[in-house]
């Protein structure tokens, strides 16, 4: 087999658990290649946030090996490099936007990467323009709407020019219009990403393949396959749910 694509993330039997509770991640194997756009269906409590935080080195797994950009990562020092190259969008934008104004918040990452003030401001303006929020530079972050906060949070990550994006529920709590904007932005990106969500329609629009994260395991197609189909029955026009799904 000819290997054409670089491995970005490789998790080998990674486990994470709190004492006396079911494991959050249970000997998880996962490989993520360059140029992949993966959607991950993940119900509440499935370990999705833990999964991302382990990749970013924010928490340490109990056991297992992690390789990122084809290098084993274990210590805090190894993860500094990871955090430069992988961007994580948090589920709650209020966790991410801590600066008083939008421009300062977006410039925070580039400044930490060693850019000068002028470069950081220039990058921030360009990122705002890309995201479609021109003129938001001096807006106060805590006064933004939920959708605007999510877009600005995405901009703070994109401003660092990451090679990979990890997005934790980017569509949660957003209206259709903002969701569409996020979809358009993600589809226009030329970088690899993993999106966790529990909205199938949203995932199917932005990803090439969809996996399921359930009870600490990633299920491949052979075990479970999420699909969409059309069917008809009486009262089908009303919103409803089916059992045994």
């Amino acid at each position: 087999m000819i290997k054409t694509k670089k491995t970005i993330i490789n998790l080998d039997k990674v486990s994470f658990f709190y004492p006396d509770r079911l494991p959050i991640l249970d000997r998880l194997d996962f490989t993520f290649y360059q140029d992949e756009k993966i959607g991950m269906m993940a119900p509440n409590g499935s370990g999705k946030t833990t999964f991302f935080h382990i990749i970013m080195g924010l928490i340490k797994p109990e056991s297992g090996k992690i390789e990122i950009f084809e290098k084993p990562v274990t210590r805090e020092k190894d993860f500094l490099e990871v955090r430069r190259r992988i961007g994580l969008l948090f589920q709650d934008s209020d966790d991410q936007l801590f600066n008083p104004t939008v421009l300062e918040d977006i410039a925070f990452g580039p400044l930490n990467l060693g850019k000068t003030k002028e470069e950081a401001i220039e990058i921030s303006r360009k990122t705002l323009e890309f995201i479609g929020l021109n003129g938001f530079e001096n807006r106060i972050t805590y006064k933004l709407s939920g959708g605007e906060k999510k877009l600005v949070a995405l901009a703070t990550i994109l401003a660092m020019e990451p090679e990979v994006l990890l997005l934790d529920e980017p569509s949660a709590g957003l209206d259709e219009k903002t969701k569409e904007r996020i979809t358009t932005i993600l589809r226009s990106l030329k970088i690899s990403y993993i999106v966790v969500s529990h909205e199938f329609d949203f995932l199917s629009e932005i990803s090439d393949s969809i996996y399921t994260l359930d009870r600490g395991k990633i299920l491949s197609d052979a075990e479970m396959y999420i699909h969409q189909h059309y069917h008809a029955h009486p009262y089908g026009g009303r919103p409803h749910k089916h059992k045994n799904e």
């Binding site: 924010l58 930490n112 003030k117 401001i121 990550i157």
Partner: peptide
């Protein structure tokens, strides 16, 4: 919340120094 904000800051390369653009 403070823990999560700090995590998010570390993800963006924060190393304890604040740089102001003003």
């Amino acid at each position: 919340r403070a823990d999560r904000v700090y995590q998010a800051m570390r993800c963006r390369g924060f190393d304890g120094r604040f740089i102001s653009i003003h």
